[in-house]
Design a protein around this nucleic acid. Structure first.
Lengths: 270, 270
DNA sequence: GAGTGGTCTAGACCACTGT
DNA sequence: CAGTGGTCTAGACCACTCC
């Protein structure tokens, strides 16, 4: 450098490392030089090096692992979830034969990955509605709900693509005992078909989208640092009678997810 | 404390300050004790105090201002934007008389604030389409566009509620010179009415939603720290002929925005 | 000029991971 | 065990704001 650089040194280091990562010079999955090495090579204190690395973590470019090293994260391939089309597609599919429903799952619809590339986990438990859920369902606090926890991940990456809790009122689904059995998952046809077995037709689905910092649990599970936000979707399914039949809270890693909604407008009268 | 606390000290301090902020003990707008004061009272080094404050900043609870102090941010009132309904409402309104259109603006529809509470800014400029915009519009790179920059803020807070760039192809709008005149803003009836003056009816609007760290410019403008994510919406409006007539990139502060989409499903045949 | 947050140093000990 | 990142100290100087 011929002229002096007025930016703080830790930022210069952060941007140089960023450049190396984006150019592929530091490939995904490889370790950064250790903090002491960087401090030596750049003639900086370890504090300043850590400051630079914190930038890279906030940018979602690297991930630090205690005792092991700091690793370049996989390139940010965003998963597009086209929810408007997805929900209608799920509804149409609920009327098909089991064979047809088995043919393709919802996660593949989002990711373009085949079923062999995906891992799927489900856990069921019963719980009473807390204040937030009671309000979402329009029922009394303590009303019994089935809580279903899902996570889906690619076989090529350990971090889940999404993580969700889905809640169903027990009194809506109790007439079909299969719906209480987690071992039936992944259920061909998804939630809308499950609800159809107890006579429920979903009329509309409202999605509320937010971004917030991850809880420590979420950061670990999604393999993101606490500086990277999560995208959350509160999905509320309402049946033909205006009754809330499912509430789901879905959490996505904010830096690798894209949600798409298509809003069709009514034609003007000509 | 009777038993030893195993958490790092900076985290204990961060959580204590968080508690005080959420309980109202440290009110919005007030300054935190200075870093040296906190270090003295808690018997910590200034480094550890700064580490704690960094947590609070990432959580969006405080904002540091160089040379002045660290201030508690306004309570996180989320602005709900119900886009599905908003877009249809805008379309319906485009057919009304000017008097009726003047009565209420789009931002009020989102926030519940009256027009007196809102400040509005617009800037117009012409530019050629870069690669990303050319792809979004389905036109050649360099095609002339009108770029309109908007920001809307509440009179009670300096930080904008949102910030956006909207792009219109010049050849679509050139037949109405008023559309090139920024001084006509805020335009009663919004973009859909503007387009209606050149014979365009919007058929559908596709929203693509992402979360990412803010650029330094955005962080300053939205008065958030670099640890707080922004929510971005790429809004694409398509007319009756399938032509892309507007592309807008809207940026929201991630910790105070909620986007809502209502997905109406087709009834099963009975 | 006094006080604030921003940058930076040169150490130290710890918890955790690998071998 | 050596090496890594996580926590922590006790200083220092700077840029900035306000009086």
């Amino acid at each position: 450098m011929s002229t002096r650089d007025w930016r703080p040194k830790y930022l210069q280091l952060a941007e140089e490392l960023r450049r190396q990562i984006l150019s592929g010079q530091l490939a995904a999955g490889t370790a950064l030089p250790s903090e002491t090495e960087l401090a030596d090579h750049w003639d900086l204190s370890r504090t300043s090096v850590r400051n630079a690395i914190r930038m890279l973590r906030d940018w979602g470019l690297v991930r630090a692992e205690q005792g092991r090293g700091t690793y370049v994260r996989a390139p940010r391939q965003r998963v597009r979830r086209r929810n408007t089309e997805r929900y209608q597609w799920e509804k149409d599919r609920a009327l098909l034969s089991e064979e047809d429903r088995r043919r393709e799952g919802g996660a593949e619809h989002d990711t373009g990955l085949s079923v062999d590339d995906l891992k799927f986990h489900a856990e069921y438990a019963e719980q009473g509605a807390d204040e937030g859920l009671a309000e979402a369902f329009g029922v009394e606090v303590g009303t019994k709900l089935l809580r279903r926890t899902y996570w889906t991940s690619s076989r090529h990456e350990s971090a889940p693509l999404s993580f969700s809790h889905s809640y169903l009122p027990l009194d809506v689904i109790s007439s079909n005992p299969d719906l209480l059995d987690a071992s039936k998952e992944p259920w061909p046809g998804g939630t809308q078909h499950q609800l159809s077995t107890v006579g429920v037709e979903v009329d509309r689905i409202v999605d509320e989208i937010r971004a917030r910092p991850p809880s420590p649990d979420e950061a670990e599970l999604l393999e993101i640092d606490s500086g990277v936000s999560v995208l959350t979707v509160r999905k509320t399914s309402i049946d033909n009678d205006g009754r809330v039949v499912e509430v789901a809270d879905v959490v996505f890693p904010g830096d690798r997810t894209e949600l798409v909604y298509t809003n069709k407008l009514k034609r003007w009268k000509t």
